[in-house]
Design a protein around this nucleic acid. Structure first.
Lengths: 343, 343
DNA sequence: CATTAGCACTCGGTAACCAGGAGTGCTAAC
DNA sequence: GTTAGCACTCCTGGTTACCGAGTGCTAATG
């Protein structure tokens, strides 16, 4: 168990290192007002803290830096999250102010987040669970090309152009779209596939002559897999951090950032609330000296997506934790309002 | 004027340096089969080439590297562009194969280009000159929100959600959209603004009661400025180049890449055909040791956009020039086909 | 006269060394 | 329990020495 004094010293060291990125020596701690002991006493405590694994030295006679365990303890017990009023305002404004498409909200959130923090932000787009079909349509562009448009109650628009094969009859297509609109209005997007394969299937046979070809085709056009989407902000922010002075670190980091799948997986498993993952706690090698902070946003208790912030382990946890917290609840709120409006 | 032998030596040096990124010494040239002179002779010629400004030394007793002027001469007179058959195939496939939206074509072009070359590709999206309005519509999502959708003959879909102010009457909005569709069908996008302000303006007054509010609003929703769009491929490719071993260079480079406006300006003035801009010939400071190669794609003699490739001055001009050339003509072709189909 | 062999010279890169300084660990005194 | 004092460690930056790749120049060569 750590004594009061040890806690204090640990905290001071972490805070100091987060600020300066330099190893912290006993003398510099003693000079600050916070700890009223001599440098020798502090040295002894630091040695103990090192034995317990909370601190490290970069070399045998250097000052101390926090170990990952030290950060862990700091985050779990010592940090007192702060909130800058200005940031709350900024976030609030973005969220409320005339943005009516989720894509936009998410993208601006990512950007604002990275701008405020100077880290890299990643947002895992909302799963489309609660969005419902508003309208399908097909607009013919020329003899053999058309564009299919799908609108959801959240104002999301999917579209896709395609060439219409000879085999498919234009009026069949139209009939089919009409039927689909009739039957699928208000159906949640994630249920579309099921519904199509059961109910609708039978119904269609009656009305449409060359049923199978058209139907398969239509399905391909409208309901193609849309993979989870990632939104980034400040991808190059981390370049400015001194821990990235090593060009090779930069290289491995950015080759990993390109692997969207890997990142999506990282964020996908996020648990509720704000969670901090430090250094090697991360599975992925390229961010083993980064910290990842995640928060989730939700709708009706149902998790919709993840907001994440990626920075050096020496991250300003103090500011960042609360920030993610407010942003995620703010997003959940906006989501909720929508849901009510567009039920 | 340069002698045959000088030309040969210059060429060998540039080729060699492009490949290895190392200063080229007289002895290593002599050892290659290409130049059958002793190293001393070659040294003399190199000294002359340096006097004329085509070569440089990194320090007083180093081998030579091409100066910017050397690259310029090389590009203008010495390089014999090659084409890898495989690449032509790849590009051709992408272009012809089931991509029916311009956005998609452009994005995949950018990606393929960067993957083939290992440089960073930038494409300036097509100006919408020749695209024409196919359909406007407004779909109501809830009492007070709607989504506006604009479809062009090229299959491009713009959409935007908005909240409907109290002041605006729903049926007025509908009437107006009907009228607009009637009158604006087939009108080139870039003429929409004009047309709206003249003809349509008067017409509308007759049918719609509270004309002005609704109209202004509609205009804002449908015809908001859409800025020129940039598509990137392989943003982080240049990290791998040895000239970016210097972390500060990396930093300044990537802060400049974020400035989309600046880049758009760079590409906007591009002249027809393939153009190579080397080092300080570029206006922008952060790419003063990069080369930028641009090509334009067009429709009916009218320039539509720019494809660009950004790499170190030590770029593989040989491969890259032809590549950009074929890609740009291929894009022009696809564009042309569309135009015919969707006239 | 163009070419080439030979040689002294230059300079970057690496390793070795040194002094200065920041910081530690330990001992002994308070 | 705390702290002053001191020897020790190791990083940092500057200096020196040396090696090797490459040059420039001169003199010899065909």
């Amino acid at each position: 168990m750590l004594t009061e004094r040890q806690l204090l010293i640990l905290q001071v060291i972490v805070d100091d290192f987060i600020e300066t990125a330099q190893p912290v020596g006993s003398r510099s701690i003693a000079k600050k007002g916070d700890v009223n002991y001599s440098s020798a006493t502090i040295r002894n405590e630091m040695a103990d803290l090192e034995d317990m694994g909370y601190l490290e030295k970069t070399h045998s006679s250097s000052g101390r830096i926090p170990s990952e365990r030290g950060y862990r303890y700091y985050v779990d017990h010592l940090v007192s999250p702060e909130q800058t009023a200005g940031n709350v305002q900024i976030i609030h404004n973005i969220m409320q102010d005339g943005l009516f498409e989720f894509e936009q909200i998410v993208q601006s959130s990512a950007e604002i987040l990275s701008r405020i923090t100077n880290y890299t932000s990643i947002i895992l787009g909302p799963e489309v669970f609660e969005t419902k079909l508003k309208q399908l349509q097909i607009i013919s562009l020329s003899e053999n090309t058309s564009v299919a448009i799908l609108v959801t109650n959240t104002g999301h628009v999917e579209h896709r152009s395609f060439s219409v094969p000879e085999a498919i009859n234009a009026s069949d297509l139209e009939k089919m779209v009409n039927i689909l609109n009739d039957r699928l209005y208000g159906v949640p997007i994630f249920k579309l596939h099921d519904k199509l394969n059961t109910e609708i299937m039978n119904l269609m046979n009656k009305y449409v002559t060359d049923f199978e070809t058209s139907y398969d085709y239509l399905k391909a056009v409208f309901f193609s897999e849309n993979p989870v989407k990632l939104y980034f902000g400040g991808k190059t922010n981390l370049l400015m951090q001194p821990e990235f002075n090593d060009i090779d670190k930069v290289r491995s980091f950015y080759s990993m950032i390109e692997e969207e799948d890997e990142i999506a997986n990282l964020l996908k498993g996020a648990s509720d609330g704000v969670k901090v993952t430090i250094g090697h706690e991360n599975k992925v090698d390229a961010i083993k000296d980064c910290s990842l902070i995640t928060a989730t946003y939700e709708l009706n208790e149902e998790q919709m997506g993840t907001i994440a912030l990626l920075g050096p382990t020496r991250m300003e946890y103090k500011k960042v934790i609360k920030l993610l917290d407010t942003l995620s609840t703010e997003m959940s709120e906006v989501l909720y309002k929508w849901y009510q409006d567009n039920e």
